[in-house]
């Protein structure tokens, strides 16, 4: 029954979106075949593509490292049981805002502030990462057992020392979260260029706008292979942590 309802809804929406139109499908397949005929690797552009991947890597790494540094104090203050409830709620709200606004919107903001380029992308990712890792970190804190908190609590530790002890206690999970975030940021840094915030996405967008699909495809394949490589290495490291 549910499936039939979904099918009917999909058909109605497809009609209104203009998808039930044979002409548009014929035109789309023609465009695809033209596009596909241009999809080949331009070996002469490989050095440029590798350079762009390097830029993307640096943006993602900067965003992850600085974001992690910001999220350390944010998460320590946000976690319940370390600071007063109202303080934790206030800081948690700030972290939520950082995380809820998509990275690409932060990219637009920083392109306006710093102009197009890698700086805008790096700062945007740092802010977005701070929001995300804060959540990962404070949830990790809150998964530590109550009894553990109570045992450390009997030492009357000031909150900063308590936070340091908990970071140390959970450092393997924290490292795993940071690795995961780096993988995520590498993919995000690849598309931030669409709004001018640097990285390989910037070059791909430029090539697509002048219909040079072979060049765009070359850059795309290089970043795809690089992301696979980083995902694999990261997976191995996270399993060993």
């Amino acid at each position: 029954m549910v499936i039939w309802v979904l099918i009917i809804i999909a058909l109605i929406l497809a009609y209104f979106l203009g998808l039930i139109d044979l002409d548009s499908w014929l035109k789309a397949s023609k465009n695809l075949s033209v596009f596909a005929s241009d999809l080949y690797i331009r070996y002469d552009l490989l050095p440029d593509a590798l350079h762009a991947v390097g830029e993307t890597f640096i943006i993602a790494l900067f965003g992850t490292v600085v974001g992690a540094l910001i999220s350390y104090p944010l998460s320590a203050i946000s976690a319940q049981g370390i600071t007063a409830r109202w303080v934790s709620l206030a800081v948690r709200t700030i972290a939520n805002v950082l995380r809820t606004v998509p990275a690409i919107f932060w990219g637009i903001l920083f392109v306006v502030m710093f102009g197009p380029g890698n700086v805008a992308g790096a700062v945007a990712l740092a802010l977005y990462t701070a929001g995300y890792l804060s959540k990962f970190f404070y949830e990790t804190f809150e998964n530590v057992s109550k009894e553990h908190y109570e045992a450390l609590g009997s030492l009357a530790l000031p909150w900063m020392v308590m936070a340091k002890a908990l970071f140390k206690h959970t450092e393997k999970q924290m490292a795993s979260h940071i690795m995961f975030m780096f993988e995520y940021n590498l993919r995000t840094a690849s598309i931030l260029g669409i709004v001018g915030a640097g990285g390989i996405g910037y070059y791909i967008t430029q090539y697509v706008s002048i219909l040079n699909y072979a060049a765009a495809f070359t850059f795309f394949i290089v970043i795809l292979l690089f992301v696979f490589l980083v995902d694999g290495v990261s997976y191995i490291i996270r399993r060993r942590i």
């Binding site: 057992s145 009894e147 109570e150 045992a151 530790l157 000031p158 020392v161 450092e171």
Partner: peptide, 30 residues
């Protein structure tokens, strides 16, 4: 009074990944 009472739960409440010495010194962190 807090520090006059030590609570050792079943999980022990130790800081994993820290050394034995660091765990003991934590008692003086306050």
């Amino acid at each position: 009074l807090r520090r006059r009472v030590a609570y050792i739960p079943q999980s022990l409440g130790l800081v994993d990944n820290a050394t034995v010495l660091e765990n003991v010194l934590l008692a003086r962190a306050a």
